[in-house]
Amino acid sequence: MITAEGYRKLIWKAKIKWLIGNIIVYSIVCIPLVPIILMYGWLIAQAFSGVCISSLIPQKLTLKNFYFLTGPIYWGGTPLYKSYWPLVRNTLLLALGTTGLVVAITSLAGYAISRFEFKGRDPLLKSVVVVHSIPGVLFLIALMYILNTIGLYGKGFLTLLSVIIIKAGLESPMYTWMLKGFFDSVPWELEWAALVDGCSRFTAWRKVVMPLIFPGIAAVSIFAFLSGWGEYLLVLTYITDRKWYTLSLALSELTYQFKHVDYGMLAAFSLLYLLPAMIFFLLTQKYLMTMRIVAYKG
C-alpha cells in the first residue's frame, strides 16, 4: 500500500519528469528555428537601415531603400530596370495564371481519378509519383526545343504564357494526387443524393462535391500561387525579353556582382518579394492546417 508521503513523492517525481521532457522537446523545436529567424530578422532590419549592418539591430533608420517603388532600379550606378511595377505584374501573371490553370486541371482530374474506374488508373497514379521525383531541369532542353518548334520561344508575352502552361503542367500531377484524397473523403451518398435530387454528374460535382472540398482547393491554390511566385529556373531559361522578366529574375540579377550589391535596396526588394507569400499564407493558413473535411454527420 502506498502512503500519503509515498503519493507526494511520486507526484513530485512525475512533475520533474514532465519538466525535463518539456525542456528537451522545446529545445529540439527551437534550435533549427534560430537560423531562420536570424535570416528574416536581418532582412527586415537591413531593409530599414541606412548602412550595411551585420546584426539584427537596424541603424540609421530610413525608407530610402525602397526608392525603386517610384523610379528605376539601379545596379552599380546604372539603371537596370526602368520601373519595379512591370516585374510585379509579370510575377503576378505567372503566379495567378499557374494557380488558375492548376486548379482547373486538378479539380477535374482529381475527381476523375477518385471517382471513376478506368483502364490504367493505377499505373497513372503510380507514375505521377515517379515522374514527380524526376528533377524538372531534365525537361528544360526538351521543352526549349518544343517551344522553339511551335514558335513560342522569345515571343514576349506568349513566352510568359507558355511558361505558365509548363509550370502548371509540372505542378498539376502532385496536386491532383492531393485533391484525390479530398475527393475520396466525400461520401458517395452525398453524390448519390445529388443525382437523385436531379443533378447531372457535372452539376453534382459543381454544386455538391466542389464546395465540400473547398479547403483542398484553397490549399492547392496557395501552393500553386507560391510556386508560381517563386519560379526562377523556367523564367530564366525561356524568357529573353526583359519586358517580361519576373521579380525572381530581377533579384538574381541584382546580386550578380558583389562590388555592385546595394544591401539595403536588396533587403527592401526581398522583403516586398516575401510579402504576398506571407499575406497569402496568413489569410489561408486555417485551410492549410485543416486539410481534411469535417462535419458531415452530426
Binding site: L190, W192, A193, P211, L212, Y296
Partner: peptide, 12 residues
C-alpha cells in the same frame, strides 16, 4: 425521392 442512412444532407 431517396432517404439515406447517413441522411446525406449537403453540409455546406
Amino acid at each position: 425521392g431517396m432517404v439515406f442512412q447517413s441522411y446525406a444532407l449537403y453540409p455546406h
